[in-house]
């Protein structure tokens, strides 16, 4: 009997600890499939964030380093500079990438650091129990915005792809979602491109994945998907914000 669906080699057999309906599992799988298809698992080193995905070093079969909160792009920079021939990626959430690690993100991007960044934006701090994230929407109720995010006191959400698309060092900045088959297919293509860019020496590539957090949003998985479509997609439109080799740094070339 032919096997039509199997675990990607780049995923270990450790079961995910993620909540039901969380999209981390889908994105992990897409990353692993891409590593398999590109045949690079053996020379890949991933960098885990602090957040719900902190233990993804147990899930990816490639070598993994666990970074301090927000510092994954800096850790990835150190790895890439030491191992220029390897494939280095970070996998980070919104608090990690767009709050505590903003400086590391922006500067790795503007240096055109030849790495791949997978960015999970679910508009909330998941692991610590649902606090406001830098990407929480105006009016969004969280543990620390019990009356809804008031932009007068808590400011506005950060649109990461738009922000990074202004930087010359960025080769790819694309926002995707994994709420339906069509979008999953697009997301996988984007992730593959983000890795291929690195292999081709094109520079910093980031794929932002709009994601759900049913547990902390207080919704069922299906409701959460709908909430994402109704609320996040209008504020964070899907699409390619930058796709250019312009300004990218190719090692060894002047």
């Amino acid at each position: 009997m032919a096997i039509v669906f199997d675990r990607p080699h780049a995923l270990t057999e450790v079961p995910f600890h993620y909540c039901p309906g969380c999209t981390h599992g889908i994105v992990h799988r897409l990353v692993a499939e891409v590593l398999d298809e590109l045949g690079v698992e053996g020379r890949t080193v991933g960098v885990a964030p602090v957040g719900c995905a902190v233990m993804n070093y147990d899930y990816f079969s490639c070598d993994m380093v666990e970074a301090p909160h927000g510092r994954a792009p800096a850790v990835a920079t150190g790895l890439k500079r030491a191992l220029p021939e390897n494939v280095i990626f970070t996998y980070q959430g919104d608090g990690d990438l767009a709050a505590i690690g903003t400086a590391e993100t922006v500067h790795a991007a503007t240096r055109g650091e030849n790495i791949t960044v997978i960015f999970i934006n679910n508009a909330i701090y998941g692991m610590t129990g649902g606090q406001m994230a830098p990407t929480s929407l105006p009016g969004q109720v969280t543990q620390t915005t019990p009356y809804g995010r008031d932009v007068n006191t808590a400011g506005y959400p950060v649109r990461v792809c738009e922000l990074l698309s202004t930087l010359d060092g960025v080769a790819l900045a694309q926002r995707v979602a994994v709420d339906c088959v069509k979008n999953v297919v697009t997301a996988k293509k984007a992730i593959k491109k983000a890795f291929q860019n690195q292999i081709d020496g094109k520079g910093f590539s980031i794929v932002e994945v709009l994601s759900t957090c049913p547990t902390n949003w207080g919704l069922t998985p299906a409701e959460a998907m709908q909430w994402l479509r109704d609320n996040m997609m209008p504020y964070y439109p899907l699409g390619v914000y930058k796709d250019s080799v312009k300004g990218a740094r190719i090692r060894g070339e002047e």
Binding site: V47, V65, A67, A74, G78, E104
Partner: peptide, 11 residues
């Protein structure tokens, strides 16, 4: 960032 780059390279 610098010390975390050291962490990465040392890894």
């Amino acid at each position: 960032a610098a010390i975390n780059m050291v962490l990465g390279a040392a890894s």
